[in-house]
Design a binder for these strands. Structure first.
Lengths: 214, 214, 214, 214
DNA sequence: GATGAATGAGGTTTCATTCAT
DNA sequence: AATGAATGAAACCTCATTCAT
């Protein structure tokens, strides 16, 4: 079974609860594999149940319907990502190091969760189509939270005179984040053409020096 | 009927061929409207045929199947975008102006084709799912072409001493392009929070001044 | 195929329309047979389609869903009954003869449509359960219409001095109608115990002479 | 919890047996509520178990299956009705009073058990469908018993010269009974149109005076 | 004895595609 | 060439019933 990256926290639970959690995990993992392979709309509940080795009805005990299952899947992964990124920003004390750590962590998340990234991009970038109704709310909230945090790092750096007095720290945060993403997507699409953006400075240097010759 | 932005080039064609082209256009336009409203998977061929005012069978004379129709649709729009962006880069002579014009044009394309952008993002960001099998090839090729062109502009600017001697012009091109996209996506998602990024300099300034205080 | 009693009026229709009507008829007849045999809830659409020798999808072209099919079926039969009963009341000029004719016609309808009677009683006497939401409205309207007509016959008879001056003609109408029904239901349930109530006077005599010895 | 009207006779039973009876009662009451609210086919065993606050398995200890539960329910109610009606007929000594009391009791039963009446009519009028296979036998037997009792009252009245010498006392019994039912059904269907048939004489008077002017 | 998690057959309905007209 | 009626596989989901604990 492929690396799915789902976490199970099993501490302090009764045997029954642990069992439930393990089942839920099996289902999410099976669904994730299939969705990753074929995309949400090309996977049937039957298939998921069979791969997870549960009866259909059991699956429906855990998730109201296919969409619910999908949302749970994305939400749990997205939470994992979120936590890692928040942690990455907050751990170091130095602003430059915070940025570097953010980029480095994002890089690791990309590399370590390729199937999920593909799945998420495949099904979710859209706004307001059936599937994303309530899902995006949560994911977007987290995205905005990252941007705010990044932005705050920049502002703090400006105040500390670590950074030049830039006009629009939020805009720069957006730029840095989207650039990291873009680098990784290029790598994903055509790894032979675009090297894996391993070194966080490879991205950050773009922003460290201004473009215009003065 | 909503503005769909499909073009018809009818020069040098027989009456019969022109008629065919017009029919094809009707079908694409109808499909586009419906896909935009509801997403690919929530639109039936029946619906498209009815909206286009053709018989289902006629539709199948023009497109092998639903997927084919969708791909044709995206491809034609993408070609329109591509042409506009290439033109935007090539028209001005000055490198800074080329960048500005690229950003400005992309902005106009976003604003003027919101339904399509949403549709495209909703259905296509994914790699290698059924729907995108052959589609992405073409779209990606065009994306890479833009990046190359942008990159060439930067290199030329460096040679002309208009720009500082940056290490990775291709990377900067990626950064600029993805940042423009990110700004527009934020605006699309939450226009009340993120103002429409009208002024091309708003984006470019981020790259015009380096971050680190020296 | 059992006698279903569905009517087709095919005059003045194009070949296509006649064909459609015949198909619809086939479907209703098949559904009717099955519903009669097993009751609404024990018949699947698959079964109906197979018995009618159509594809499921074709069936859904004619009826929105199973319930719709059922309602159409009941409504068409009920209309047939209604027309016959109205005609029965209105044809004779004499009031006593009107009553006799009503009873006689109801008797014929019962005898000639036993499967439908059973089906209708099985599925429809209830008030406001899913199935009857809009159906009862129409059927009840017709039932009330009969009662009114019967009642009017009684009033007219009173005015003509054909009948004694009874206090509550509407109540008597209800009594006569429900008694006819009850006689037939008893016969249906246990024909060996309750003879077929052929002679209209057998019912009417009950009401022709008062009970109390004066 | 709504008034369900289930009775428990607990005399002369061991503690264990009394407990069992109470459990059975709980289950029937819960099932009755739900069936009344939504109809047999729209209620699941799961729902009943939850409402009754028993495990599904426990429920299956008491009733072989869903149908069995339903039949028990109807049978017990029907028995209650039967007993009340028999008692109503037998209590008074005078024949007219017996009739009056019968009508009055039936009226009370209708009014006091509307949900059940609806449920019964909704699911049971049909003959010989799965649901009623063995059920109707019992219910019908009781119905016939009432008719016989009513009929006997009429015959006795004739012998006593309380009633005119009518030809078909059994038919009259059927007529009276079905008319009482019809009055109540009309009231149930459209109370604003048909007043509650409270006064037993309102029904009986119809039969007390003959229709034809002599 | 009581439990309720697990089952999976079977329900209704949709819709891409075909092909006779 | 154009049509659109007909198809039926396959989708999602429910729920009566079983049986290991």
């Amino acid at each position: 079974m492929m690396q799915t990256g789902f976490r199970m926290r099993e501490e302090n639970l009764s045997r029954r609860e642990r069992e439930k959690l393990r089942q839920r995990f099996q289902m999410l993992a099976a669904a994730f594999e299939l969705f990753s392979e074929k995309g949400y709309h090309n996977v049937s509940i039957q298939e998921i149940a069979k791969r997870a080795e549960f009866a259909i009805g059991t699956l429906y005990k855990f998730f109201q319907n296919k969409e619910d299952l999908y949302k749970a899947l994305v939400l749990e992964q997205s939470e994992k990502f979120h936590d890692a990124l928040v942690q990455a920003i907050e751990a170091p004390s130095d602003e430059v190091e915070k940025l570097r750590n953010y980029v480095r962590t994002k890089s690791e998340l990309f590399r370590g969760n390729l199937p999920f990234i593909r799945l998420y991009l495949a099904e979710n970038r859209g706004v307001s189509y059936t599937l994303n109704e309530g899902l995006d709310d949560e994911v977007r909230k987290r995205y905005y939270a990252h941007l705010e945090k990044l932005s705050a790092v920049l502002e703090s750096g400006i105040k500390n005179k670590r950074f030049r007095d830039i006009a629009d720290p939020y805009g720069l945060a957006v730029a840095i984040d989207s650039t990291v993403n873009a680098f990784h997507l290029l790598w994903m699409d055509a790894p032979e053409k675009h090297p894996y953006p391993e070194d966080p400075d490879a991205v950050l240097n773009i922003f460290f020096k201004g473009l215009i010759a003065s």
